[in-house]
Design a protein around this nucleic acid. Structure first.
Lengths: 243, 243
DNA sequence: CAGTGGTCTAGACCACTCG
DNA sequence: GAGTGGTCTAGACCACTGG
């Protein structure tokens, strides 16, 4: 990797990235291309250094980035592994110091629509652009906990439908990665409190006007551009929400 | 810093920390001891390397940690600077992509009490231990936005009172640092949604049973032990909450 | 035991900021 | 130009894991 241009097809990227960032990007690209799947062990740092024509320390710095982003997991004496794509909707947790609880995801709907002002701004689309809205329900111990609406550009994720989502166990990030070759990372969310409307109350099993936690978040691809806009409506009478 | 024991007074810490962690700890200790204050420039990496008897790369790794924790700020060509202690209660932000808004903090009360189960568990104290509760109000553009209750051990923060808090512009972290020589970092918060009680409604200027965002968070010292337990009640009808 | 990641060093060069 | 942080290298040794 003596030079960016010698290995890239000729696109761009902000002029000149440090080598360790290029290493990071190359590894993400390889994962997105299907060279390594979730659970696979990556070549050793020295092998990667050889492959990318950089020193082992530079490879390590790139791997450090990816571990911090949750893309890789490393264990001393064992190796570096590709992490399972986390759906990233959040987690339920008991307020008194406890571990995150397991939740089951259920697909409620997958429908087409047009971007309103908020969604368009969040996704960098023009107002009225075609979007696909995926509505899911998260259950904890069988009880409804969160209603999750995710919006993506219909153009970018062409062919996204209920069948595919169910096949992927309702894990959207897994679909982005395996079907569309795109690994995303969640941005920092914005939080609000609101009251349950008719629809939310029915789906979450709470009374009308019950207090609900609203979590607003975008997720961006490796290039930093937002590709997913998610709103979570969360009842927190039993559990708290941990990002 | 050939050995931990040669420079430590003989306490403990998990057996044997890496050198760069020891560098990090030494620097925090120096800041807490008042050697460098907020805004001060630290010695260069090479000077620090000389002082700690390690290589410049090891110093850098320690500084990287501190920058990630928000303790230091570094600017290429300029130097490394001690960051202002951030109070860490959070920030208000307009839901449609915008910057965090400035908030004014007002002290409502500073009172003594006894730890309930939650506070005791969160702070690692015994139930009923003496605690000091600081209640503050955050205003955005003059309008009440958040009610912030912070609990600390009265024993550890002996002499904490309203006068000191006002002198520090209601920035508690600044007091922990300057008066008690302790720099803390916020842990990941837990979120809930609730309804405004009589007290919260009055102070925040919302109606009874208005939806409020509840943020629960501990903050821990350099040694990882929790020292501050904060609950934020936040009205989010106008702005969102960003951690 | 061999192979992995984790730490540490010494030295080089670059990019930025200021006077 | 002098001084700073940012990147990169090559090589060494340690600590952990598995067979």
């Amino acid at each position: 990797m003596a030079s960016v241009h010698s290995q890239r097809t000729g696109e761009e990227l902000p002029s000149r990235q440090p080598l360790y960032v290029q290493v990071r990007d190359q590894i993400v690209t390889s994962i997105e291309a299907g060279e390594w799947h979730a659970g696979d062990m990556l070549p050793s740092e020295f092998e990667l250094a050889d492959r990318f024509r950089v020193s082992q320390g530079t490879v390590r710095k790139g791997l450090d980035l990816l571990e911090a982003e949750g893309v890789l997991r490393r264990r001393q004496g064992l190796g570096t592994f590709v992490a399972e794509a986390d759906d990233g909707w959040g987690r339920a947790e008991l307020p008194g110091i406890g571990h995150p609880l397991d939740a089951d995801l259920e697909l409620l709907s997958c429908s087409r629509g047009h971007a309103g002002d908020t969604a368009a701004a969040a996704l960098g689309l023009r107002r009225g652009a075609a979007i696909t809205v995926v509505r899911r329900l998260a259950r904890v111990a069988g009880e409804p906990f969160a209603l999750i609406d995710s919006c993506v550009s219909s153009e970018r994720f062409d062919g996204l439908d209920a069948r595919r989502i169910k096949q992927a166990d309702c894990n959207l990030r897994r679909i982005w990665l395996r079907q569309f070759g795109l690994r995303v990372v969640s941005d920092s969310p914005l939080y609000r409190a609101g009251l349950a409307g008719r629809e939310e109350a029915r789906l979450l099993g709470v009374g009308l006007d019950a207090p609900l936690l609203e979590v607003l978040r975008t997720a961006s691809g490796m290039d930093g551009r937002p590709v997913e806009w998610t709103t979570v409506w969360c009842r927190t009478d039993l559990y708290g929400y941990r990002p």
